[in-house]
């Protein structure tokens, strides 16, 4: 397992380097003069040159990249153009709420998705199956920003159960996490159903039933346990869906997380924040994929044997 993990980490390095080059080039790829854009339309030539110097855009491009990488290694992500605060400090307050929101969404989506998938599979072509699959296909098709607004209208405005937005304790996480998790829940439900249907046809299930095991035991201990490995892997690999979705959901709920910060930074053309936020999102996504891959080899005895 350690060998596999080490190999995967080594494989990650070139991709991370290319991503760092892309995020570094971000400011250079903007059509027009980035220093002029940052300084504003009314800025004098002197102001523009000052901004160019401040951003280090007057140095040779290779030197700029080397400086950028050196700074990255030391956690120096530059200064926000709008707030004047170090970008890393802004991330410190925004990162954890986003992470909590993402994990909470993943948790409920996996639990409910598994339940719907199992009930649909054991009631194939009966009403619980139809109901489960209609819920699942609707969950995939519903726009997150619309679902969020509907939940706010129902639970916050009409029933007054949860705050309409912001971050004020655990209750502020409920509606955003329901919105963010809906798509993943649906994917997990669909995948669990098809995986369970396949497993339920396996010989060991027939053997289990033939030797008189209770149906509950056949489903939970034998079939579900077998399907669980691939289902959990699929759930983990959908993490990127949550990262992308979090941008929209955080905007709907005015949730002070990384996604909202990214959108605000785009609106104010705060390029140092945009660059670093994109880098962080990509890094987070790659890291989660790595963890899921390694976990899969740990959980799946077949792969352990093969290696």
């Amino acid at each position: 397992m350690w060998k596999y993990t080490a190999r995967r980490i080594v494989e990650m390095i070139p991709i991370l380097i290319v991503i760092s080059i892309l995020t570094f080039l971000f400011i250079h790829l903007i059509p027009g003069d980035p220093a002029r854009l940052v300084a504003g339309k009314d800025a004098t030539i002197e102001d523009v040159e000052n901004v160019r110097h401040e951003l280090g855009l007057d140095k040779p491009i290779l030197k700029q990249y080397v400086d950028y990488m050196k700074n990255l290694m030391t956690g120096e992500l530059g200064t926000s153009l709008t707030t004047g605060l170090p970008v890393i400090d802004m991330f410190k307050t925004r990162f954890m709420p986003s992470l909590h929101l993402t994990f909470l969404s993943m948790l409920w989506a996996t639990l409910i998705g598994l339940m719907i998938g199992v009930f649909s599979a054991i009631n194939k072509n009966k009403w619980p199956d139809y109901f489960g699959m209609v819920t699942a296909v609707s969950g995939i098709s519903i726009p997150g920003f619309w679902l969020g607004l509907l939940l706010i209208q129902l639970f916050s405005v009409q029933l007054g159960l949860f705050p309409t937005g912001g971050l004020d304790g655990f209750s502020s996480y409920i509606l955003p996490s329901l919105t963010l998790g809906a798509g993943i829940m649906s994917m997990i439900a669909r995948f669990t159903r098809s995986s369970m249907l396949e497993t339920l046809q396996a010989d060991f299930i027939r053997t289990g039933r033939a030797k008189g095991l209770k149906e509950h035991s056949v489903i939970v201990t034998h079939a579900l346990r077998n399907s669980l490995i691939s289902v959990v892997t699929v759930a983990g690999l959908q993490f990127g869906f949550l990262l992308g979705g979090s941008v929209v959901v955080e905007t709907v709920f005015s949730f002070p997380g990384m996604g909202r910060l990214l959108i605000d930074s785009i609106a104010f053309r705060d390029y140092p924040v945009i660059q670093s936020a994109l880098l962080l999102f990509a890094f987070e996504f790659i890291l989660v994929n790595l963890i899921v891959d390694v976990l899969y080899t740990v959980l799946n005895p077949k792969i352990q044997l093969d290696s």
Binding site: I15, P31, F241, L243, G245, V247, I274
Partner: peptide, 24 residues
């Protein structure tokens, strides 16, 4: 395929947001 891997390292919607942030 490695170029695709790089694009896959950004979640779909985030990649789209990054491109629009770049192009306007």
């Amino acid at each position: 395929m490695r170029s695709c891997d790089v694009l896959f390292s950004f979640p779909d919607l985030l990649l789209a947001i990054a491109i629009v942030a770049l192009l306007g």
